[in-house]
Structure formats: C-alpha cells, structure tokens
Design a protein around this nucleic acid. Structure first.
Length: 288
DNA sequence: AATCGTGTCAACCGCTAGTAA
DNA sequence: CTTACTAGCGGTTGACACGAT
C-alpha cells in the first residue's frame, strides 16, 4: 500500500478527512441510512452525503456503495453465458473500459465486471491460449499473423505489438467524445431528440450507459433517436457485422445521424471507419 | 481439528477530466 | 487563464469463504 505521505503530491484535496471516518464493510444500518437518504434526496453531491445522511463514511465510499450495491437496478448473482460472451466482445472492443462495458450490460456494475474479468475470464482466455489483454493467441512472436477471434483475419506485420482492440478503442473513444459534444450542444437539432436523456445521463459514454441514466425505474436511458442509433452502432461493432455488406450505407447513416452540425469528424475517425473492417488497414493506419 | 492455499469480491486508493468560481 | 472542487475511473488490496491436505 502506498504511503500517502510519500506519494506523489496531488493538487486535489481528499474527499474527506480520514480522521473519524469508518472504513471496511458496510453494515445493514449504514446501507439503510444511505439508501433512504438517496431515495429522498437523490444522487449527487457525494461529498456532503455522509454528513447529511448521518454516516461516518467518506463521500467516495458512499457513492461506491450506492453504485455497486444499493442501487435498485443492480443485478446480483452469477453472470450468465450470454453476459459473459458480451463482456468478452466488449472487452475486445474497448479494452479495460469497465464502466463502458458495464453500461452495455444491464444491472451489472463496472466493479463486478472488472472482478469477473480478473478472476474468471482472463484465466479462461489464458487456458484457451489467448492473451486476455490483446485477445491474440499467446506465445506468438512478432511475426504472428492471426487474430484470436478470427483465424481468417491477418494482422499487420508492422503493428504486431499493438493490441487488436486498440483501434476499436480509439474509435469508440473518439466517437464518444463527439457524441458528448453533440449531446451538450443545445442548438444542435441533429441530436435534439434525445437531449433530455443526454443531459441527464452521467458518464462519458452516454449512449452506452445502461442503468446510469435518469430514468426512475432503473431502465436504461437508451431511448429513441440518436442514442438508439449509437447503441446500434456499438452493437454492430461488438457483433462484428458493422462492416459487412451494409458497410457504406450504415457508415453514412451513422455519420449523418450522430455528427454534430457544423462539426467535422476528424481524420482519425473517418480513416478508422473506413478501415476498421479490415484489420490490416485499421492497424496500419492508426499507430495510436 | 488445524493449517494452508486459493478464489472471490467489496472496498479503497490515486489519478484525471470536467466544471464552476 | 487559473484555481479549487467534484465525480468518476481503473488498478489494487485485503478480508473472508472454502476446499485440500
């Protein structure tokens, strides 16, 4: 454990004094206090929550407890095969972006998925001879030519050290950034339909957030309009059919749908879009 | 019954992006 | 523009459960 006194100086202040703060597992009474308080006051202003709720916890701890355990839409229990498959696909697409992955799996939290990955899936992949970090076959030297999930696909010899999922992640990140720009632009009619949802959803990857959204019943905040479009877009990426026979039409539709008016996709995204279906090209064109 | 090793997962940590002042 | 604050993220830790010896 790092010693706070010797750790790198941070410009941020601690979320609370460590003196008099309770740590460790939460008790049932604490859970009830927090849950009742949030039901009454709503989420947010976590730093002040402990004091207002009468808890001897730090705000961070309260937030974590709520998000990972107390929130009504949190699903408990084993992760079923369908969810596991989805996690694998999303991880290949997004890497260790646990919150994004969790956003696509209703009821599951980033912490739960991260734990499941570290304790189950990474070992499972290793046992199958697959590098859990790169999703490439293990023990392949720099001249490897095969991508783990598709033996027919060949990787680019010049980018052998690069994660196959890197390009996907670059695209996902960039698209999400553009999505956020669009969603925050109140004058942008293209994304106007789902403005209410966007503005109320927390998290960066709004269209991917499952139960992080504003709805009262814990349903995903995905609604009609562009969030649906983007959701479908990501689904397509996950299902690897986005760049199939409908590539051109879909790409065009997505671009038209989610590009903020007056904004141009940067060259990276356009180039990635054009080549992502071709692993060789995608990896070649995107050094980072 | 006691000890040890391993797996699981809740919780904590530092860091950073976003935003308000 | 700078500073301070907040929320959220991913990595890591450690307590606990449980099976093996």
């Amino acid at each position: 454990m790092k010693n706070p006194a010797t750790s790198k100086t941070s410009t941020t202040t601690p979320c609370c004094s460590k003196v008099g703060i309770k740590r460790g597992p939460w008790t049932r009474e604490e859970d009830e206090l927090l849950a009742n308080f949030i039901k009454k006051e709503g989420e947010g202003r976590w730093r002040t929550v402990p004091k207002r709720a009468g808890l001897l916890r730090c705000g961070k701890s309260c937030r974590l407890r709520w998000v990972n355990y107390l929130r009504p839409c949190v699903k408990r229990g084993r992760i079923d095969p369908d969810e596991e498959d989805l996690i694998l696909r999303l991880h290949r697409l997004l890497g260790n972006r646990w919150s994004l992955i969790a956003g696509r799996i209703p009821g599951r939290t980033d912490n739960e998925i991260k734990n499941y990955w570290n304790t189950h899936l990474s070992k499972k992949l290793i046992s199958q001879g697959i590098d859990p970090r790169t999703h490439k076959p293990l023990n392949l030297n720099s001249s490897c030519t095969q991508v783990a999930h598709d033996p027919n696909q060949t990787s680019n010899p010049t980018s052998q050290s690069e994660e196959p999922s890197k390009t996907y992640r670059v695209i996902a990140t960039k698209v999400s950034e553009n999505f956020k720009v669009a969603s925050n632009d109140h004058q942008n009619q293209v994304v106007h339909n789902s403005q209410e949802n966007w503005s109320n959803c927390d998290g960066l990857f709004m269209g991917l957030q499952g139960c992080h959204g504003p709805s009262n019943d814990g349903e995903a905040c995905l609604g009609s309009g562009n969030d649906d479009t983007f959701s479908s877009f990501l689904d397509s990426l996950v299902n690897e059919n986005f760049f199939g026979s409908q590539q051109q039409q879909q790409t065009s539709m997505i671009m038209q749908s989610i590009q903020p008016m007056g904004t141009n996709w940067d060259a990276d995204i356009m180039s990635s879009m054009a080549t992502i279906g071709d692993v060789d090209g995608a990896l070649t064109n995107h050094p980072a």
